[in-house]
Amino acid sequence: MQISIKENGGPAFFPGLAHPRTVKLDTLPEQDQQELRQLIAASDFFKLPQSTVPEPGKPGQVHYTLTVTEGEREHTVCVLAPVKSRELDGLVQCVRRHIR
């Protein structure tokens, strides 16, 4: 399984510098792998509406594009910051921690 995240928008955003960053779970310690898997399950990530762009009318607001790939299954979701769902926000923050 791997998780990619791309941060867009905000006052210091430079589109040419925004590239997705990827975390491969099998390279992480077992505890971190479990945490990410639990956050994916808790947020019902694969059941969220698929999207790749922010809500209309909010182009400058910070948003995150998350893509989770597991075998043949891949799902992408774009969420605005601050993320309203506690579980999904936990997933975003955990992924951001692992890409630094």
Results as ranks from 00 to 15, higher is better:
M1R: 06
M1Y: 09
Q2I: 04
Q2F: 07
I3M: 09
S4I: 08
K6E: 13
K6L: 13
N8I: 01
G9V: 02
G10K: 01
G10E: 01
G10C: 01
P11V: 01
A12D: 15
A12K: 05
F13C: 00
G16T: 01
L17F: 08
H19L: 13
P20W: 10
R21Q: 11
R21C: 05
K24V: 10
L25G: 07
P29Q: 04
Q31M: 09
Q33P: 04
Q33T: 12
Q33E: 14
E35R: 15
L39C: 10
L39T: 09
I40E: 12
D44I: 02
F45A: 09
F46C: 06
K47L: 13
L48D: 05
P49A: 10
P49W: 05
Q50W: 01
V53Y: 07
P56K: 08
P56Y: 06
K58M: 11
K58F: 13
P59L: 04
G60P: 01
Q61P: 02
V62T: 14
Y64K: 06
T65E: 15
L66M: 10
L66K: 06
T69N: 12
G71Y: 13
G71W: 09
E74T: 15
T76E: 11
V77T: 04
V77I: 10
C78R: 13
C78D: 10
V79C: 02
A81N: 08
A81D: 12
P82I: 02
S85K: 14
E87L: 09
G90A: 04
V95T: 12
V95K: 05
R96H: 10
H98Q: 15
R100Q: 11
